[in-house]
């Protein structure tokens, strides 16, 4: 095997190996026959239904055979599509999406399968779909189905980055499928079921980031009185709730780095001194409960260094902050010796 992940090593006797070899010989022969047949068809550039079926056969055994996926698409483009009505094309692509769905169940991390789905989706023709006369009907139905598939895959493995990437791709390509609010709810649900799931925190940061970029809160000057003020306070409320949300995770398990990383994102560059000081207080409060929490201490150093950027403000006492950083860093060297050098480097930069 070229690449094994999580396959236990077992000691195999020569006899057992020989038995396995004999047993596999027929399978190897069968596979090689399919393989040679497929490559011969591809070389001859025939694009018939029977060629298509040959790709189905071999891909059902080996979904990583990218050349067979390529050939399959060539058959679509050069053989099947030109001879078909849009409804038939939609039918073809839908059944390919169904086939690859079954493959994903067994091979959730094969790039080529995800990639083929993407290609299929993008080739769905204009047409009515199930509910009437819209030209986008077929497409909408297929994108909806894709969303369902991506989320099913995330139910099975909430860290599968293929599924997350694919989901982002669907939302970006077909924005009406999910509002930003839907997205926030989805990430919240994922985080609530397991807040070690950094993939969900990450996605949440992307959704909120995109929302705040386009909400008037960041460009109030351009907008008019009431509405911008209203939007601004709405946004502040959302941010405040977000801090409460992440705080609850930090307190529940201060040893889980996912929430700490998100917390860092939420504070960002620390431009808002009030927020920065408030969050430092939150961490110090937690530190009283958990004096040996590495993430508490490391975050405290990070945020206090951000605080030093505001050294011109009267509330910022530089030497006291530096002292507290040195204290935390010294403690970190002791409780986290693996990364000792990093703490020493930061100390020397203070």
């Amino acid at each position: 095997m070229v690449s094994n992940h999580n396959v236990k090593r077992t000691r195999v006797s020569p006899e057992a190996l020989e038995a396995k070899r004999l047993k596999e010989l027929s399978k190897v022969k069968e596979y090689l026959a399919l393989n040679d047949d497929l490559l011969a068809r591809k070389r001859s550039k025939t694009y018939r239904k029977e060629d298509f079926e040959a790709t189905t056969r071999i891909l059902s055994i080996n979904p990583e055979f990218y050349t067979a996926w390529n050939y399959r698409r060539e058959i679509f483009l050069n053989g099947l599509f030109p001879a078909s009505t849009p409804a038939q094309i939609d039918e073809f692509l839908s059944s390919d999406l169904d086939m690859t769905m079954a493959q994903l169940q067994r091979h959730p991390k094969v790039y080529w399968i995800w990639n083929h789905r993407r290609w299929c989706l993008e080739h769905v023709p204009e047409g009515p779909g199930e509910d009437g006369d819209s030209r986008e009907g077929w497409r909408r139905d297929n994108w909806n189905k894709e969303m369902f598939v991506a989320e099913k895959m995330l139910d099975r493995d909430p860290r599968n980055f293929h599924a997350w990437n694919y989901r982002r791709y669907i939302v970006a390509s077909w924005p009406s499928i999910r509002t930003k609010d839907d997205e926030l709810k989805y990430t919240k649900k994922k985080i609530q079921s397991n807040f070690s799931n950094f993939s969900a925190w990450h996605q949440r940061s992307k959704v909120l980031g995109a929302m705040w970029e386009v909400t008037p809160a960041t460009r109030t000057e351009q907008d008019e009185g009431m509405s911008s003020h209203h939007a601004h306070s709405c946004c502040r409320l959302i941010i405040l709730k977000e801090f409460e949300f992440v705080k609850s995770a930090l307190w529940t398990d201060p040893g889980d780095q996912s929430a700490w990383i998100y917390h860092r994102w939420l504070i960002g560059e620390g431009d808002d001194l009030v927020v920065l000081q408030r969050e430092i207080d939150v961490i110090e409060e937690l530190l009283v409960e958990e004096p040996d929490s590495k993430w508490c201490l490391d975050s405290l150093v990070h945020f206090q260094r951000l605080l030093l950027q505001h050294k011109d403000e009267s509330s910022v006492d530089v030497s006291s902050i530096q002292q507290r950083c040195v204290f935390a860093l010294t403690k970190l060297e002791a409780i986290d010796p693996k990364r000792k050098q990093r703490y020493q480097d930061i100390k020397s930069q203070l």
Binding site: K247, S248, W251, T252, D253, P254, L286, E289
Partner: peptide, 8 residues
């Protein structure tokens, strides 16, 4: 939050 921490 404090009860969460204690219960955990």
């Amino acid at each position: 939050n404090s009860q969460k921490r204690k219960l955990m």
